[in-house]
Structures are given as C-alpha cells and as structure tokens.
Amino acid sequence: MTDPTANLLEIENLEVRFHGERTVHAINGLDLELKSGEVMTILGESGSGKSVTLKALLKLLPERRTAMSGSMTVGGIDVMALKGRALSDYRGKTVSMIFQEPALALDPVYTIGDQIAEAVMRHERVSKKDALARALDMLKRVRIPSPESRLKNYPHEMSGGMRQRAMIALALACKPDLLLADEPTTALDATVQIQVLLLLRELQKEFGMGIVFVTHDIGVAVEISDRIAVMYAGNIVEEGTVGEIIKDPRHPYTKGLLASNLHDADAGETLSSIPGSPPPLDVKPDHCSFAPRCAHAEERCLSALPPVFKPGPGRRVACILEEGRAPQRLGQRLPEPA
C-alpha cells in the first residue's frame, strides 16, 4: 500500500447466496472500491444486503449455508482464498468490525480490559501486561471517563454509549487498515449517536484507516462519509460523493429515499414514501429490482438488468434514465436536479 492512489478495498462481482429452507440471493454482482483513508457509507433499507456485504468481507457468514463467488481484496490480500490461520490473522488485524448492538457483541462474562487485551495478544507478540496497557490507552482514545476502573468493568456495568466506545476501542486496538461499521449508532440514543459519530470521524483522521459504514439513516451517512453507495436488493444502484448524492440524486430509488427523509417536513404535510416493498430475492434478479416500485419504469426495465452509467469519476448510476443525459465533460456544470 505504498501507492496512495491504490485501492485499499476492491470488491468485484460479489455474489452471496444463502441456501436453507429457502434460497436467498442476498448479494448480486456487487462492485465496490475504497481508497485507504476514505469513508464510504453503504446506504439502504433492511434486507438490502448491507450487513451481509460486511460479514462477507470478514468471512463471518455461516459456511455451511452460504455460497460466495466473485473477488474481494483488501490491501492486496485475496479474501476469498483466506482460511484457517491466515483468515484469523486477517480478522481484527487487517480488517475489524464494530457491531450494531454493543450489548450483544461483547462477551458478558469477560471484563472490557480482558476483551481488548485478548485481541492485542492475538495479533501481536506482547505480554498480558503490555496488552492491558494498550487496552487502557485505547479506552483513553475513545474518551471513556475514568478508563482505569472501566478496564475492570463487565459490559453490563456500562451504558449503551460507553459499551459502543469500548467496542470501537476493541476494533481499533490492532490498528486495522479497514474498519467495518455495521449500523454502530442505530441502537443508541440520538444524543449519544452524534457523540459516537464525531468520535469515529476523529479516530478515522487519527488512525487513517478506511471505513465502510453501513446505515439506513441518510443523516448519519451525510455526517460520517466521503462517499455514499446506495444499495438495493443486493446491489449498488447509485454511488457518488455525499454532495452528489444529496444535491443530485439520479436513481429513482435514491430520490425516493431522500424524499422520505423526515428533515424539513412541516406539521400536517403528507410524508412521502416509496410505494411497495423490496423484492423477496428468492431468485437471482434478471431485471431491475426496483422497477416494480418505480414511477419511471418502462417495459425494458422488466426484461433486462439496467446498464450502469458512469457520469463521472467515482460516480455511477444503474438506471436507463441516464441514457438521455449528455456525457459529462470536465468543466461542465452538473445539470440542476429536477
């Protein structure tokens, strides 16, 4: 990773299929790239495959019931080929993860200090004493008050926000290149959410790692990220910088998501929502998954997968509506949103 322009994370044509009582095509040909030090948010509603993508990156999906194909590389490591010792070396060291519900993601019968020290000792040849010293340092960095005594606390002795800070300390203890954050603020109170987001952003600058952040909350996505990828039915339908997505959404689904945001809504005003619900995904999509809910859908939307247009660097839209637009050239102004 000496080349700063090189991608830290590259996902190409990822497909994840669960088989069991019924088959679910959770991820369908997903492409994603992330530069080191960049924060990317995957935005989407429940069931769109956001969390599955993160778990696939750590190979945490239940092996017996999951079929994966495509390619994933992190810092040049071929994730698909990892197994055994190499896989557990990679987990927590190269890529680590913070989870949605810190109360459930921490072991209830180990102290916070022990849980952080355990990760440090797993990846670095240090003594228990040094590992605990690192744990203390991490608790300080995530600004947990009276860190010395918190080190000896069990998870149930801490508040929700405190536990999530401890989880972040654990995830960053081995200085990972890539941090995966699976809705880390969803389970928290609104005021605590903001604090945790600000903390994550600061730590990201301090540690310089890349972050893939998953959320269904546009407000959170805007707050934390450099770029946003909008996910629907197991694939990315639109990607761009935060400004591009907010000011110039191109895909009808993105527009719908932005319109159904509660911000700026006046009392008594009818709230808009996207009609219908996401497809069941028991068969692999062979046409635009959003077409049944889309006001602009044409016949061909239902007969083939939509083409992916790339109107600018790092910008893509998977929708036929892009067809009529003139290819964007350098210096040309973006068209005003409709």
Partner: peptide, 27 residues
C-alpha cells in the same frame, strides 16, 4: 449469540472462541 461472531471478527481461532463458550456455559 452475536458476540461469538465478534470474537471471530477480532481474530480468535476456534479454540479461542471455545474458551469463551466454556466461561459462559459454566454458571
């Protein structure tokens, strides 16, 4: 439980995870 996934995510081997299971099952 979720924390088992989290233990794997921080790089514990199957044996390391089982140590946690034992501690949790004991009471």
């Amino acid at each position: 439980q979720d924390f088992v996934g989290a233990l794997r995510a921080k790089g514990l081997s199957q044996v390391g995870v089982l140590r946690h299971v034992v501690r949790n099952v004991t009471p």
